[in-house]
Amino acid sequence: MTFRLSYGDCDPAGIVYYANYQRWMERTHTEWWFLQGLRFDDLPSRLGVAVVTRAASAEYERTITLFDQIECRLYATSVGRTSFTMRGDFIREDGTRASTATLTLVCVDPHMPEKAVPVPPPMRRLLRSGSAGR
C-alpha cells in the first residue's frame, strides 16, 4: 500500500507519530487478506478460526514528515502451526526504509479465544506462496 502523510499522522513538529506505524501495518495486512478473498470477520464462519494479535513491534530508522509518501511492503516471515508473522517495511520516496513493523498473529477457536488452533490450509497456502510480497 502507498499513502501520503497528512496532518493527522504527525506530531506538532510535523514528524510522523511513532504509533501510526502499527496502525498502518494493521491496515496493510488486513487489506492484503481482503484482496486474497479472506476477510477476518468472515473467518469464523468460513474457516472455523478467529485471528488475534499476539505481538507487535516496530523499529524506526529514518524520519518521515508531513506530505511524505510511504509504501508499505508486506511479507509473511514465518508460518508456524497456530501462528504466523507478517513484516511491513515502510519505504520512503527516496527508496530508503523508514521503519519495519511486525505482527505475530495466532489462529484461535472463535468460541474459546484462549485456545490456539492450527492455521487453516487456505491461509497457510497464501502465506507460504509469497503472495504477501510486494
Rank of each mutant, 00 (worst) to 15 (best):
M1V: 14
T2P: 03
F3M: 15
Y7N: 13
Y7A: 12
D9T: 12
D9R: 12
C10G: 06
A13V: 06
G14E: 09
G14V: 04
V16P: 03
Y17G: 15
A19E: 13
N20H: 07
W24A: 05
M25A: 07
R27S: 13
T28P: 02
T28F: 11
T28I: 08
T28R: 14
H29P: 03
E31Q: 14
E31V: 10
L35V: 03
Q36F: 02
R39S: 10
D42M: 05
P44E: 06
L47Q: 06
G48D: 03
V49K: 01
V51M: 00
V52Y: 01
A55F: 01
A58T: 09
E59H: 12
T65P: 04
D68R: 09
Q69L: 13
I70H: 04
C72F: 03
L74Y: 07
Y75D: 11
T77W: 00
S78R: 07
G80M: 05
S83T: 00
S83H: 01
F84K: 01
F84L: 01
F84E: 00
R87D: 09
G88M: 03
F90D: 12
I91V: 14
I91L: 14
I91N: 06
I91M: 10
E93P: 11
D94A: 14
S99D: 10
T100Q: 15
A101C: 13
T102G: 00
L103H: 05
T104V: 02
L105I: 03
L105P: 02
D109T: 08
P110L: 07
H111S: 14
M112T: 15
P113W: 05
P113Q: 14
E114C: 10
A116H: 04
P118M: 11
P118W: 05
P120G: 09
P122E: 15
P122A: 12
R128M: 14
R128H: 08
R128K: 13
G130I: 05
A132T: 08
G133P: 01
R134M: 09
